[in-house]
Write a protein that binds this DNA or RNA. Structure first.
Length: 323
RNA sequence: CGCGGGGUAGAGCAGUUCGGUAGCUCGUCGGGCUCAUAACCCGGAGGUCGUGAGGUUCAAAUCCCACCCCCGCAA
């Protein structure tokens, strides 16, 4: 890796931190970090810095948080100026959260490299990992690419497959992928420097999109097969979590589940078929075909608990209908 | 001051409306039954009811006041 590499890092959530850390620990020079502005989050709308900012500040890196990059706006023009001052030879983007305008994409002599959480051209877009799990994929992966104007359409550099176990949840995959992404980025930079990587254009005909997770994606539908319900639960766990309504009108989120049965058809979809408070416990819920065991749950207004604790709190009886 | 729920034995909860010295389901410890058991039976330990030697009262987990902490939603 060239000593003269001047890297500008752009990223926002936890997922991006692993790659930033890898860069910081390598012999490259990170000249600056661009991330989203602090946003009011949590109870009482406390202003919270994005994870990347927290890490970057720990490392003593200069942090920039423009509200927009668009040329012609106050922040955008200020950023353009910053860009010239930092004068990066390469920009690395990982889940930054904003579209990069042409002047940014064209600035670095070595281009803009993006780390994306899917095997492109599948699952372009905002939530590739969650969507892959929800869709029941048995594998996904990381793709590094040069950035182009379109949404995740650039020429691909390196790919690395990551298997998805049938009970892996979003957190499992996220953490694994963050590490793989970090490692693959370093390999990509080495490969580019050595000239051993041949950029490959994506076949747009095979492209699929992973839309960001909306509220509606988090509603469980027991009129689906058990496997599908289970995939949705784990794809959205531990955040934002998927939920169902109980007879009392309150909602329960299901944190962890497993498929109990995949063949038996059920008329009363969402019915609690059985409850078992032994050990960690389990609550069996009927799906259109088959059933699932809810293993850990989160009642509205409460904290996370095991199925056994949930049952002891008298929150469920066999025969209840959830939906 | 974004909205709402809550702090009672190791865990999850009830009791607070109509104040009267604490209960349920588990866990735990001991014993019994059983070929055996996460099943069943008997018995026990374990709680200053978030904090304030606050207020009201003959009496507060229950009413009033202040503070601390936790959680869900929404972003």
């Amino acid at each position: 890796m060239g000593e003269k590499l001047r890297i500008l890092f752009m990223g926002t959530p936890d997922f991006a931190c692993a790659t930033l850390r890898a860069l910081c620990e390598s012999d490259t020079c990170v000249v600056g970090v661009v991330t989203q502005p602090d946003k009011p989050k949590g109870r009482g709308y406390t202003l919270m810095p994005p994870p990347v900012k927290v890490y970057a500040e720990e490392q003593g890196l200069p942090v920039y948080q423009p509200t927009t990059l668009k040329a012609g706006t106050e922040d955008g023009d200020a950023f353009a100026e910053t860009l010239r001052e930092l004068d990066p030879t390469l920009i690395v983007v990982v889940a930054y959260g904003k579209i990069l305008p042409a002047y940014v994409l064209e600035y670095p002599s070595l281009g803009c490299v993006n780390v994306h959480g899917s095997l492109l051209p599948a699952y372009r877009g905002a939530a590739p990992m969650q969507r892959a799990i929800i869709d029941g994929c048995s594998e996904t992966g990381i793709t590094t690419m040069y950035m182009a104007a379109g949404l995740d359409t650039g020429d691909m550099l390196l790919k690395r497959v990551v298997p998805i176990g049938e009970n892996d949840n979003f957190e499992d995959i996220h953490d694994r992928m963050a590490e793989v992404g970090a490692a693959l980025l370093l390999e990509t930079l080495e490969g580019l420097a050595a000239g051993t990587i041949v950029p490959q254009p994506q076949d747009d005909a095979l492209a699929t999109y992973a839309a960001k997770i909306e509220r509606e994606d988090c509603l469980l539908d027991f009129s689906r097969p058990a496997r599908e319900v289970h995939n949705r639960i784990r794809g959205l766990s531990p955040i934002p979590l998927s939920s169902a309504a109980m007879p009392n009108g309150k909602r329960v989120k299901i944190i962890a589940s497993m498929v109990a049965d995949e063949v038996t058809p059920h008329e009363r979809v969402g019915e609690i078929l059985s409850i078992d408070a032994v050990g960690e416990g389990r609550v069996e819920i009927a799906c259109a075909v088959g059933s699932i065991y809810a293993l850990r749950l989160l009642p509205e207004g409460k904290g996370r608990m095991t199925a056994a604790d949930f049952i002891r709190g008298r929150r469920v009886e066999a025969g209840d209908i959830w939906g």
